[in-house]
Amino acid sequence: MMELSLTVNGRPFAVHVDPATTLVEVLRDELGLTGTKIGCDRGACSACTVWLDGEVVASCMTFALDARGKQITTIEGLAKDEQLHPVQQAFVDHDALQCGFCTPGMVMSCAHLVERNPACTLDDVRGAVSGHLCRCGAYPNIFKATLAAAAAMRQRKSGGGT
């Protein structure tokens, strides 16, 4: 077992883990942050997507020890002060989810995209979620929602909006 300090959603945590433990196992089983899901546990469905120093990673394929010293952002840390992230709000408005199980991961990837590239295109959105699986088939609305959120962010950044 090894002692491990992690910074999750801006807060420090210390846990004891076996070195083979993955980041998602720590988030879910040790920290109770069950918003991050495991769909395949092999990095092939991306339901476990979190941000590591602002980059999307598959937390099921990340050794927890590799997350030391990095800023970990999970779905629980995306909304600020109960204010939904524009991508979260757009997912609600455009019904970009059905069963909802892949949704936290999808939101993390789409939010990453629009923050990086508010001028993103449909192809960019398809690319951003190309490693995700939504078995319910919410994709068309995920595309619409993400593009709408990007438009909202552009407007906000340009100081526009009402």
């Binding site: 879910r28 942050l33 069950t34 918003g35 991050t36 899901k37 495991i38 999970t74 779905i75 629980e76 995306l78 909304a79 939904l84 979260q88 997912f91 609600v92 408005d93 019904d95 989810l97 909802g100 199980f101 949704t103 936290p104 939101v107």
Partner: peptide
Amino acid sequence: NRVDAIPKVTGKARYTYD
């Protein structure tokens, strides 16, 4: 809008697995 969309987009929805 789906009335239970917000717990789903915030990770608060509790599935059996959770």
